[in-house]
């Protein structure tokens, strides 16, 4: 709740991702894991039970070789603004939507590991710690002090790099700026994207790049029919890419709906 005696200008942080620019290099996935202290895979981890807060899926137009054409689409927590599914189902109140930023935040320490939120999330953007987090010997020295490592048995997900958001707020305080204005910062994926396909900013700021891009042609969101009001906008000039946004799962390829595509 925002109290009655404090007037702040609320932000609505969001992203626009240009699918036509994404080369599928994976820099965002690596930068995200480095930033958020996500451990390397356990030997038994697969693409079904690993932890990738942001995951780049390869989708295609469903035509046979050589007519097949592919695209890469990064999917992370969509930070739903309307009837946020994971918030509703959490029995622990471990998930909340920050009214000041619009970020769907999760507290792994509150999580009891029931994974109801994972079932509720239409975007498959939540990940469960099936194993104790383990880093090779010495590599724990490279952990980011701004983010707590999680333990086994809890769910975690993208929170727009809130460690960076904290740091930006702290910097703003040091510069004597008031806390009523939203701070500007970049999540790790947006910063790492070599081709700058990911743009991040306050969607409430009409002059900001993400807000303008979200309004432009070819803009779409994933599973818009569910009316969850995601804050991740995608862009593509290709019709089949935009059509795939309504597939129940990014890797439910058009070849055999529902069957997992191991390349995805």
């Amino acid at each position: 709740m925002i109290g009655p005696n404090k007037q702040i200008r609320a932000a609505r942080y969001g992203m626009t991702i240009d699918v036509d620019r994404c080369t599928g290099c994976g820099a965002c996935m690596v930068a995200c894991a480095v930033e958020n202290n996500v451990p390397p895979a356990h030997a038994g981890a697969t693409d079904r039970n690993g932890i990738t807060w942001i995951r780049v899926y390869k989708i295609d137009n469903g035509l046979p070789y050589p007519e097949t054409r592919s695209a890469f689409i990064p999917v992370m927590c969509q930070h739903c603004g309307n009837e946020t599914p994971c918030v509703h189902v959490c029995p622990q109140q471990a998930v909340d939507v920050d009214p000041a930023t619009g970020v769907v935040g999760e507290m792994p320490q509150r999580c009891l590991g029931c994974r109801y939120c994972m079932a509720a999330c239409p975007y498959h953007a939540r990940y469960f710690n099936w194993w104790d987090p383990a880093w090779p010997k010495g590599m724990e020295k490279t952990l980011n002090p701004d983010v707590t490592p999680r333990m086994r048995g809890v769910v975690e997900k993208c929170n727009f790099c809130h460690g960076r958001w904290h740091a930006a707020k702290q910097q703003a305080a040091a510069e004597g700026k008031p806390d009523t204005e939203p701070v500007q910062y970049l999540p790790a994926c947006a910063e790492a994207c070599p081709i700058k396909a990911i743009q991040f900013g306050d969607l409430n700021d009409p002059a900001g790049a993400p807000a303008r891009a979200a309004q432009s042609g070819g803009s779409f969101r994933l599973l818009e029919k569910l009316h969850t009001d995601p804050k991740i906008y995608y862009r593509s000039k290709r019709d089949w890419v935009r059509a795939s946004a309504n597939a129940p799962h990014p890797f439910a390829g058009q070849h055999e709906a529902g069957k997992e595509n191991h390349r995805g």
Binding site: D96, M107, N159
Partner: peptide, 15 residues
């Protein structure tokens, strides 16, 4: 924080 009207979400103070 509640008195000050500054209680927004868990991630205000948790990392």
């Amino acid at each position: 924080h509640r008195q000050q009207g500054l209680e927004h979400s868990c991630l205000d103070c948790h990392k």
